[in-house]
Design a protein around this nucleic acid. Structure first.
Lengths: 154, 154
DNA sequence: TTGCCTGCAAATCCTTTGCATACTG
DNA sequence: CAGTATGCAAAGGATTTGCAGGCAA
């Protein structure tokens, strides 16, 4: 399932690369692949480290990760969220839109989608004559796990 | 009106300063004052430049602006929002909670508050057993002014 | 073979820190 | 007068850029 889905994404990626007069490289492929399959939120550095781990034979530098993430974001194959504390994180961008519930203690992230909030947002933008492009909402709190830990600590 | 309000804030600020064994300085006062009265969203640098402009006799360094903004934010007298493009911005924090509608072209910001969204957020956090602390929502779009400009350009 | 990509290291940007001096209380 | 705050400049951390060699087309 995921696999089939991925091939579609990979094709879109290849087309984008060709359209931009760029070249298809192993590094670029691996970055997209990791974003897609790990289904996680990465800082450029954490993504870089994971790739080094998973593909020990592949030579990769962090500059390439930055460069590729920027390209992927422009192409809407990656999305970034920036939240105060834990820096800017990227995730695969081809998923359905969703928002984030973030633990301020451990940085853990839960994704959610709420139709009511979505439609209110549209209305608010319309009310102010803004042409809505995207939006981005984060709820910050303490996750159940960290609430427990805090209790034990004091 | 604002003036009376400001005195209250200023008192709170002075108390905070005393409580923390800190000292009341002109620089700190001017930073709070500017945040309060300009009712605007500032990067540390833009705030710094405005103050230099408005108080030519006052000697102020950007390090002090950073230091004071950090203190104000901890004390909840300033709030920051970070949105991808236009960096991290601070605003006076004593206002009622609100969210932001941001123009991606010119960085213009409209504040809004929507009760329905607010209550949905509480419910979502509760559903996931998160202890909610804060949240932060940005809608990105193009403001009416920039929509017009775009038309003329192309 | 051409010219884009890469890793590396240097450069840049933003923010914080160390230090000597200035000022508050 | 003691001890904090300041401005400046240097240090730090994150991201971008320049370059010489490597690889895709």
């Amino acid at each position: 399932m995921d696999k089939a889905n991925y091939n579609e994404i990979l094709n879109r990626f290849k087309v984008l690369i060709k359209e931009n007069g760029m070249k298809y490289t192993k590094q670029r492929e691996v970055i997209l692949e990791t974003l897609f399959f790990s289904n996680n939120h990465f800082t450029p550095e954490s993504l870089y480290l994971l790739i080094k781990d998973n593909y020990p034979k592949l030579n990769i530098g962090i500059a390439t990760v930055y460069r590729t993430l920027n390209f992927l974001e422009e192409s809407e194959l990656a999305t970034s969220i920036s939240f105060g504390m834990h820096g800017k994180k990227y995730e695969f961008g081809g998923k359905e839109h969703h928002d984030h519930l973030i633990c301020k203690e451990c940085g853990d992230i839960i994704e959610f989608l709420d139709d009511i909030i979505e439609s209110r947002q549209e209305e608010i933008a319309k009310k102010h004559n803004y042409k809505i492009q995207s939006h981005n909402m984060q709820i910050f709190g303490v996750c159940p796990k960290c609430q427990k830990n805090k209790k034990f600590k004091g």
